[in-house]
Design a protein around this nucleic acid. Structure first.
Length: 308
DNA sequence: AACGTATTCAACCGCACACGT
DNA sequence: GACGTGTGCGGTTGAATACGT
């Protein structure tokens, strides 16, 4: 059987998003909020499929996203979580609210995999996923003990990462935001600050690109504009007006976007993830039982905390 | 400068699941 | 319970860019 593709209609555009499309999408979502993605292309006139719109928003335009330059803390956290959760990028991303699952996945595939491989070759690190994977060959008892140890290590890493406000409040990295911990520049005090920055960069890139030049991808636009935008738009009270006249820098309600106020450090959440994955891992290693999707677990958790 | 190769990352694709009817 | 639809996730692709010769 199989479902028909979500973009069956002809004339659906693919490939990189243009700044113009981004602005249309951001303007629309500012007004209506995310959700009901099916309606987005219809209501905006964007020749994109709903999936593409959602992806663009969640991976690039969403407020509070930080891109590139993973810190050591983030890197360690990702490594630990990957060892614990496997390739459950959405689950891992839930511990790094400013990073998208796609970003983390890419970073893992391009940087961390290699790094860990190197480390393994030199025998300098024992807390990586390959190591964990190699535990398949261990006896069940050994494996369980090892798993317990890994979970303990990961918990510790999480605790460290989630309590960094005590240790490095003035470094460019970590401070608490709305109950979770966020890796942002000190000058940025809210998820909206990042949103403003994103949109500012977007607009800068858009207006900068000359009509004669070939149509720039947004990434290029952002790159061009980043430096200027950083100095032009402060985190407070900045307002950006789009071509269509919409003030698209008005504060987004963080709750609308699903990661506003949930306490990621809540032991209930951590415990549920860890214990469920503990169970999953054990299942995986012991019997042919259906594998519980951790991402779905997180999704359910998000939904129950009022995301949609 | 020109070319080939490697790397990065935005975006796509297909699948699984939740939810409404 | 069966079915249809919408959404989210993980794996993969390929264009753009960086690097080496």
């Amino acid at each position: 059987m199989g479902r028909p593709p979500c973009c069956e209609k002809g004339g659906v555009k693919k490939g990189p998003w243009t700044p113009e499309e981004d602005i249309v999408l951001v303007s629309y979502l500012q007004e209506h909020g995310p959700g009901n993605w099916r309606a987005v292309p219809t209501n905006t006139g964007l020749r994109r499929c709903s999936k593409s719109c959602r992806l663009r928003w969640t991976n690039y335009l969403r407020p509070g996203i930080r891109r590139g330059n993973f810190t050591d803390q983030e890197e360690k956290l990702i490594i630990q979580l990957q060892a614990l959760l496997g390739n459950k990028w959405a689950a891992i991303a839930s511990y790094l609210p400013e990073r998208t699952d796609n970003d983390i996945k890419n970073y893992w595939n391009t940087h961390l995999k290699k790094k860990l491989k190197k480390m393994q070759q030199t025998g300098s690190d024992c807390s990586n996923s390959d190591e964990l994977m190699s535990s398949h060959s261990l006896s069940k008892g050994q494996w369980e003990r090892r798993l317990q140890a890994d979970i303990k290590t990961a918990k510790q890493a999480l605790q460290d990462a989630l309590s960094l406000d005590k240790t490095i409040p003035q470094t460019p990295d970590v401070h608490p935001i709305h109950g979770y911990y966020s890796f942002t520049k000190p000058v940025q005090t809210s998820t909206y600050a990042s949103s403003t920055e994103n949109i500012a960069k977007l607009l800068k890139g858009w207006t900068k690109s000359s009509p004669n030049s070939r149509s720039l991808s947004t990434q290029q636009s952002f790159n061009n504009a980043a430096a200027a935008a950083d100095s032009t738009f402060s985190s407070e009270g900045s307002s950006v007006e789009s071509k269509s006249g919409h003030d698209i820098s008005e504060p987004f309600e963080s709750n609308k976007f699903g990661f506003g106020s949930f306490d990621y450090s809540s032991s209930e959440f951590s415990q549920s993830i860890i214990s469920s994955n503990e169970r999953e891992c054990k299942k995986e290693h012991t019997a042919d039982v259906p594998f519980v999707n951790t991402g779905e677990l997180v999704a359910r958790r998000r939904r129950s905390s009022g995301e949609r």
